[in-house]
Each structure stands twice: as C-alpha cells, then as structure tokens.
Computed example of a mutant assay.
Amino acid sequence: MIVVMKPKASLEEINKIKAKIISLGCEIHESNGANYSLLGLVGDTSRIDAHLLQANDSVEKVIIVQEPYKKANRLFHPENSEIIVGDRSIGGKKLSIMAGPCSVETEEQIMTIAKDVQASGATFLRGGAFKPRTSPYSFQGLEKHGLELLKMAKKETGLPIVTEIMSTSHIDDFVEDVDVIQVGARNMQNFDLLKALGKTNKPILLKRGLSSTIEELLMSAEYIMAGGNENVILCERGIRTFEKYTRNTLDLSAIPAIKKLSHLPVIVDPSHAAGLWWMVEPLAKAAVAVGADGLIVEVHNDPANAWCDGNQSITPERFNNLMKKLSVIAEVEDREI
C-alpha cells in the first residue's frame, strides 16, 4: 500500500498520517520528490483501511501494491536509485564498468590486469578470492590471501573492489576490505546470507539465479533491503535454458522489465552469460543498448592459462577496443563511459 500525499500537504499533516500508520504496526518507506511525497507501507497492511486514509484532506490517493516486493518496487521509489560507492555511483548517467579476472591468481597477475583495465576506463576491479565451483576438485580461489592481493591492486590503482562472498562467516572481512560485495547466482536464495548482508551498509551486487524468475530476483533484493540495507545492485548474468551451445542464455529482456518494475540499478555480466570470449563484445554492446547501468566483464592477460574460466575471458587489448565501441553506443542512449 502506498499513500500519495497532496503536493501542498504540510509536514505536520504528513507526520500525523505517519504516526497513524506506525500505530497500526507497519513500517514506512518514505520517498520525496520535487512535487510528490510517498509513504510506502511495509508489513501487514490487512488491518489498515485504505478508505479511511483516503478520507484525509492531505491525502491525494492510496495505491494498493499487488507485488510481494515493496522496497525494491518502483511504485515505492519512482526515480532511479543511484548507489554510492566512495566517490563513484552506480545507476547514474555514467555507466559502471567492472572488469578483472575470474579469480585472483598471483600478485603480478592482478596488478597487471588492474592497471590495464583502469587505463581502458574501467571504474571497478572485479576478481574472485572465494570461488564457487561445480566440481569440488576445481580451484576454489586464494580466499583471504586473494582479498589481500585485491587490496594491494586497489591501493595501486584506486579502483574499488568487487568480489563474491560465499559465507556469513566472511562478512566482517568483506565489510572491512570490499567496496561492493557480490552475491553469486548460486547464493541468490541463500536467505541467511541475504539477511546478514541486510544488516550491513555495504553495496551488494546481487546476481540472478540460474533458474530464477525476475520476481524471485526482486524478492531476494527485498530480503537485503528489509534488513535495512537499501544499497542493492541487480545483475543479469544469463539463465539456464534448453540451449547448450552457450554456458547460459542472456536474458536481455530482463533489463527493461526490471527497470519498469524496480528502481534499482541493473548490471549485466556478458562473460558468464555466454561462456565464450568472442560473444562478450556483442552481448556487452546489446546490454548497453537496452538500458543496462553497467557491465561486469572478465578480463585476463593470459586466458589460455587462466586458473578459472579462461574460455570466457577477454584480453586487455580486446577490452580496450570494447570500451571504445561501448562509448559510442552509450552516447546514443544518453549515457557515458
């Protein structure tokens, strides 16, 4: 339920309505614009009579929200959200480009790649320290040592760190050392992890699950936001379909759909979507064209010998060429790199 206040409603009148709502057991998500004031009701609204609220002179109208997600809903927050990360933001006019290796391997590797992607215009450094793998015998990442190497690369380049968390036991380390905490596709519905991240104030990059609907993705975002952390960025990374030629099927239609339903920024991962390095460029260009707020791209200086997912990683040279092409498409969409 959303209470839309009249443009000339006084602060006293608004506070009176808010006090009434709170007394009935609901939380309030307030959104104010130049010409509007919205009071979004979160919780059990069954005891609230919309007609009685509508009867107040200061209330313009009351909207019943059918979707189960509230705080992630665009009705609660009509304008696009921008997530602030240090001196950068995700969701504004400037596209956020997160680039780096699938996994951190050595100090030399991460330093070299970080400097290369920064020179090409990347705004964030991505790199896996803890790696979820299908096989228990595959490389699982350097773990805490990997985080230390990412911190060294950040100190050298100034690029904020984006890396994936696997367990609630790592939250303290991630809150201290990581700028954007990534929740991977396999953990999208790890509700204990989502609840714990909701108690932090760190930006969370939430990836869509392999077989999850858009509504399920938004409900997972709601878990984080309901805990108090509204710094959520969504990520479309491809979904599992009957097609086996590519690793996943990139759902480009999800970007405009999510933009219609939610105010949260949307990032696209063309690397995991295709699983093929030569598809990264066309998918990245398409993502920008349909309205994505940024990309997360796997870049490796020696893909043939990468410890993880080399077949979907592009070289720094190809990344540099891609950035030049993306800047042209971004300009057409009134965005910039």
Rank of each mutant, 00 (worst) to 15 (best):
I2K: 00
M5W: 12
A9Y: 12
K20I: 04
I21N: 01
H29L: 05
H29M: 07
S31P: 07
N32F: 14
D44P: 08
H51A: 08
H51C: 05
L52M: 11
Q54E: 13
S58I: 09
E60D: 02
K61E: 10
I64N: 11
N73W: 04
R74Y: 10
F76C: 04
H77I: 13
E79F: 13
E82I: 11
D87P: 01
S89A: 06
I90P: 08
I97R: 03
P101T: 11
E107M: 09
S120H: 00
G121I: 01
F124K: 06
P132S: 11
S135H: 09
F139R: 08
H145E: 09
L149F: 06
M152H: 15
A153S: 13
K155V: 10
L159H: 00
P160K: 04
I161Q: 10
T168C: 09
D173S: 12
V175W: 13
D179P: 01
V180Y: 11
V183K: 12
G184K: 04
N201G: 13
K202T: 14
K202A: 09
P203V: 10
K207G: 05
S211C: 15
T213M: 06
E215Y: 03
L218E: 11
A221M: 08
A221F: 14
N231Y: 01
L234S: 09
C235W: 02
G238D: 08
T241W: 00
T241K: 06
E243L: 01
T249S: 11
A257V: 06
A257G: 07
K259A: 04
K260F: 11
K260E: 15
L264I: 08
P265Y: 03
P265M: 04
V268G: 08
A273W: 01
G275S: 09
W277F: 11
A284V: 02
A284P: 01
A289W: 06
D293M: 13
D302C: 04
A304T: 14
W307V: 02
G310L: 07
E317I: 12
E317F: 05
N321A: 15
M323I: 05
E331G: 12
E331F: 02
D334C: 10
R335C: 14
